[in-house]
Nucleic acid binder design. Structure first.
Length: 486
DNA sequence: TTTTGAGTTGTTCGA
DNA sequence: GTCGAACAACTCAAA
């Protein structure tokens, strides 16, 4: 058995499927010892929730890409299924590895603590590196000593701190062991949808893996970033945003690498705004790290009394993009077909589910987690709660998005609607966001029969708004000032 | 300790 | 059609 100075190092890949800016990998290479690169398919864990179906598709392709890159460097990716502590211990036993290197994933701190302790107790050296975020969410503290609960001071604190660290370069070689342990195959994992193959269109839009991420970044900083602040709000403009979110979610690119790519650019409000969005991701992780209940419970517990409704029919109509409100339906269908949804439309659809339909934000959060390629525990929970009004620095409860107005404001020509709700494409733009108000002859000319070719609205937005505001008023104070003797 | 200013993304109403 | 105020109060962060 090899001694510790020549024994291999296990490099445990998780949501850091990259060679670039990978502290664990680079440090392992610098030791000059052979590397065993491992990905473990772990049983579902309560703390981070199951892998969504859309992300299973992405994971398949991302692991394939990583595996090819490692092979090109003379190494391999070993795939294993089981409890990470057991799989890694067994691999160490089999190969004589004496060390496990990995990158920290803050949302997994609870699970990782146990796994790492068990590996350490088993006699392995365990080293953990940083790279998931620009700043450590646990050390960011406001002047009063606690975690930040408001975004703007958080952003200002980061600005004052100066530039985040520079990303690490990818290693050029990956020393391999003489023999590799056995590996499972991706085919065995059945991560791809079969019948039906609902991911068909994903392939035309996405290139999972590190190379795809770098390409998206290069395209974005070459041009769209210079109009980002102005254009990012219009869902019909497909080249206005970075499309980096799924790559970030799988750690195929690091936030430090993205930040660094924006440093050489001429300063502008647009560049700053993009950086602020990157910092929103940091803020969500900061919140989740400080308040782990954020993922599953109302951050503001006053909302525990909110009268959510079952409304299964409404929920089904929402998931299928059949609510009768074109901008909502376009967004939900974009999500299904492309595995992503434009940011503004996420707010509109979320507001509609929560406020117009009075459905618990957790059901919407779960649907997004299952269908979004970029699903991220921290961002998803924090943003759903932001819309619901129960979250940190949340939208005030009286802010209810009007799906008609939002459509007319941000998709004035209806181009986004036409792309995802083609049955309305012949409607004139005057009615494309309000087909239920179109005169019969206009509908007929456009080939639209409400209730047949396109649904009638599942709720009347104006009545629904009043109902939601009344319900919010119940839980946000009026009950608190009622006479306790009542 | 107390005070002060401020807070991602909206809508509606009335002048 | 455009504009400003109201929508509610509360909590946070920093001075």
């Amino acid at each position: 058995m090899p001694d510790a100075t020549h024994s291999p190092i296990l490099v445990w890949f998780r949501k850091d499927l990259r060679l670039d800016d990978n502290g664990a990998l680079l440090s392992a290479v610098e030791k000059g010892r052979p590397l065993l690169c491992v990905y473990v398919r772990e049983p579902e864990d309560e703390a981070v929730g199951p892998l969504g179906a859309a992300q299973a598709w992405w994971l398949h392709h991302s692991l394939q890409a990583l595996s090819a890159t490692l092979q090109a460097c003379g190494n391999r990716l070993i795939l294993k299924t089981g409890k990470a502590s057991e799989v890694l211990a067994a691999l160490a036993e089999e190969t004589g590895a004496k060390a496990v290197y990995l990158n920290r994933l803050y949302e997994r701190d609870g699970i990782d603590a146990e796994i790492l302790k068990s590996l350490y107790d088993g006699g392995l050296e365990v080293k953990r590196f940083k790279g998931q975020l620009l700043h450590d969410p646990h050390t960011m503290r406001s002047g009063t000593g606690g975690p930040y609960r408001v975004y703007t001071p958080f952003w200002k604190a980061l600005e004052k701190d100066g530039e985040p660290r520079e990303p690490l370069e990818a290693p050029e070689t990956l020393p391999a062991p003489g023999t590799f342990p056995s590996s499972e195959t991706l085919c065995d994992w059945h991560l791809l949808p079969m019948h039906p193959n609902w991911a068909e269109e994903f392939e035309t839009l996405w290139t999972p893996g590190e190379a795809g991420a770098v390409e998206k970044l290069e395209q974005f900083v070459a041009r769209p970033i210079h109009t980002y602040k102005a254009d990012r709000d219009f869902p019909a403009l497909t080249e206005a945003t970075s499309h980096l979110s799924p790559h970030l979610a799988f750690g195929e690119i690091s936030p430090a690498r993205i930040w660094y790519a924006t440093r050489g650019l001429p300063a502008s409000d647009h560049v700053t705004h993009f950086r602020k969005e990157l910092v929103w991701r940091e803020f969500c992780h900061h919140l989740l790290a400080a308040f782990p209940k954020l993922r599953t419970h109302n951050w503001n517990d006053r909302f525990d009394a909110f009268p959510w409704e079952e409304n299964d029919d409404g929920f089904q109509a929402w998931t299928k993009g059949m609510t009768g409100y074109p901008i909502v339906d376009a967004g939900m269908r974009e999500l299904w077909r492309h595995g992503i949804m434009h940011n503004r439309v996420r707010m509109i659809t979320a507001s509609f589910l929560i406020k117009d339909m009075m459905v618990d934000w957790r059901r919407g959060e779960a649907w997004f987690r299952d269908t979004l390629l970029d699903a991220d525990v921290a961002s998803n929970a924090a943003n759903w709660q932001w819309v619901a009004g129960s979250g940190a620095d949340a939208s005030p409860f009286f802010r209810v998005f009007n799906p008609i107005l939002q459509g007319e404001k941000f998709d004035a020509d209806g181009d986004y609607i036409k792309r995802f709700v083609p049955e309305l494409s012949r409607l004139p733009k005057k009615y494309i966001h309000r087909p239920f108000e179109a005169p019969p002859e206009v509908l007929q000319k456009a080939g639209v029969t409400l209730g047949k070719t396109y649904p009638k609205p599942v709720v009347n937005h104006f009545e629904a708004r009043d109902r939601a505001l009344a319900a919010y008023a119940e839980v946000t104070g009026k009950s608190a000032v009622s006479d306790p003797r009542d």
